[in-house]
Design a protein around this nucleic acid. Structure first.
Lengths: 340, 340
DNA sequence: TTGAAAGCGTTACCAT
DNA sequence: ATGGTAACGCTTTCAA
């Protein structure tokens, strides 16, 4: 356990030069079969493992991509990671993950870390109000693709979903079900939430006799959802909404849970609820949630493709913003029980 | 964007030697305030960012720890990561994550990757039947601590939960509620599941007139749970169990979902269900799940502490196996509705 | 307190 | 097809 064996040890044991060892490692075709065998034998005997640090230092480039995610507990982010991994794997690139836990300081720290590590590229699904943090690394030459966030300035690739369309679809769905008093709950500090609200407004404007109200929440957690339910339940029954658009699934889940616990508001009977995210964490919901699916895996794939493109042609690369359409997944929280 | 500025650029601009630059980076106390200021100014001007590869190559040690997880979609693993991060952060160590998606090849690949990267240490929460994969890296001198898995051989630290105790607690809980026909469902290829079953057997042996039956499943997913429900529903009502011990929460969740969809078996009325994991993904369950919580965050902390210890005293380090006690979290799937 | 120079383990290039 | 050698960017002696 002295010191890990290096290429020079391998070279010595195999009776060849270090250049040849490097060749069997990187361009096996150019080395004679017999020599290659000797080198491979030496590698096995010594238990030699390449030193990636030395490698990327000498080669001037790393083979790993980092994915910095705002919150990995939301399965949407993990779907993004999976999609990206799938594409990167084919390009023989590795993907490592970092979880920022929705904390500004962690996001900053991980971005710094990966910049120091000179990873080949950065996939960043930031806390939406903190997308600007990628500007520094970008300016210093890092390749970065943003996911699920508005590019803070042109010239950075991104993959987003059309949140306005999502909001529109959600509202339309409720309107088509005959709901007329809609309530949108969410935290305006998230740009995505603002867009969804706008989309919902659009759908309401197109309809006759439908109203839309906005209820501000602190965040978009289950707890925030319970607060929304409380606020709704506190109202005179006649003044209650009959359709709820939640800024996120967890928020919707909180509402559904609290409503069930209280018992005086039936879902979807009295109140139809639409979430957003298709977060697996809410899949087990008492009343399966109608939601907007953002096709996370496909977004991740797309982001990885964009990044690969930028890596391959650093020069003639067109910065693109890919916008994907969310799709409505109707379930019991608006449709009622499967049997009915 | 030519070439990133290096310490020698900084040194030139600041009018000092590279050694001095390195000193302000690593041992700021030893350099005169004035010089330090000049260097810091140069660093800011140039937008210098340390190269971690060069750093760990020269210093012979990295400042990052990798966490290789079998399946990050299970929030338990993310809790482990959080706990570890909390401790490592204080030691100025970074934590990067890798998701193996329960795939043997990915787990292998990530272990290889991090060994090549010469990370300072490895935290591995493997697929339980693949804990042996850490043996290679260990033998070559990597510091590794296993989480949630039996050490494949003595001499490797690990943090586990007492699965027998968990199984025992789960069964005892059902027995105390008066259930007498217990069914344990799970996949025996997971050592943890086997232990839980054993624990359950123990509790049953202590009780009068209680029977325990084992039902093999393919895995421990929601889908497997639905299959379990199907199998139970196919039986003559008199031959059905009245208490179910599931090998994991998702499995339990599937049972609950399928039972609700069918409607002929009330939970917990006809069948009380206990899960295992306290997986957040099942928190929204129609019937909140009674489960065993494994204190993931604390396990993560403990693993990180063990790893730090091993890093600090490579020599006189005692390999430890820390076993933590799971705690029963009783909820509606065994107790019935909160109001009743 | 600062400078000079020797590595760290690999790749890449130029000879051979 | 193979060998020799100069980088890569940093840390770490050791002297001054």
């Amino acid at each position: 356990m002295e010191r890990a064996p290096s290429v020079v040890d391998v070279a010595r044991v195999a009776g060849v030069s270090v250049g040849t060892v490097s060749n069997v490692l990187n361009r096996p075709q150019v080395v004679a079969a017999a020599t290659r065998a000797r080198v491979e034998k030496a590698i096995a005997e010594l238990g030699f493992v390449r030193n990636a640090a030395a490698r990327s230092l000498a080669a001037g480039s790393s083979r790993t991509i980092a994915f910095v995610a705002a919150d990995l507990t939301n399965t949407f982010f993990l779907d993004l990671a999976r999609g990206a991994e799938e594409i990167l794997e084919k390009a023989e690139l590795n993907l490592v993950l970092a979880n920022c836990d929705s904390r500004e300081d962690k996001q900053r720290a991980y971005l710094d870390l990966f910049e120091e590590e000179r990873v080949a590229g950065l996939l960043v699904a930031p806390r939406q109000d903190l997308a600007g943090q990628v500007l520094g690394p970008r300016a210093r030459g890092m390749r970065v693709v943003l996911l699920n966030a508005e590019p803070p300035e042109p010239g950075v690739c991104s993959v987003q979903t059309d949140n306005r369309a999502g909001g529109y679809l959600a509202a339309r769905h409720l309107i088509e079900l005959g709901r007329t008093r809609l309530l949108f709950a969410g935290a305006r500090r998230f740009p995505a939430v603002v867009d969804r609200l706008e989309g919902a407004r659009l759908a309401v404007a197109e309809a006759e006799g439908v109203t839309l109200e906005y209820l501000a929440t602190v965040g978009v957690t289950t707890e925030d959802g319970r607060a929304v339910a409380e606020s709704v339940l506190a109202r005179d029954p006649a003044a209650r909404p009959d359709g709820l658009l939640a800024g996120a699934d967890l928020l919707a889940l909180g509402v559904v849970q609290a409503a069930a616990a209280d018992g005086s508001v039936a879902i979807p009977g009295d109140l139809a609820v639409v979430g957003y995210d298709n977060n697996r964490e809410s899949w087990g919901s008492m009343t399966p949630l109608t939601t907007l699916d953002q096709a996370g895996v496909e977004m991740g794939r797309e982001a990885a493709r964009l990044l690969l493109e930028e890596l391959r042609e650093p020069a003639g690369h067109e910065h693109a913003t890919v916008v994907m359409e969310p799709v409505l997944v109707p379930r019991a929280s608006t449709l009622g029980h499967p049997g009915g």
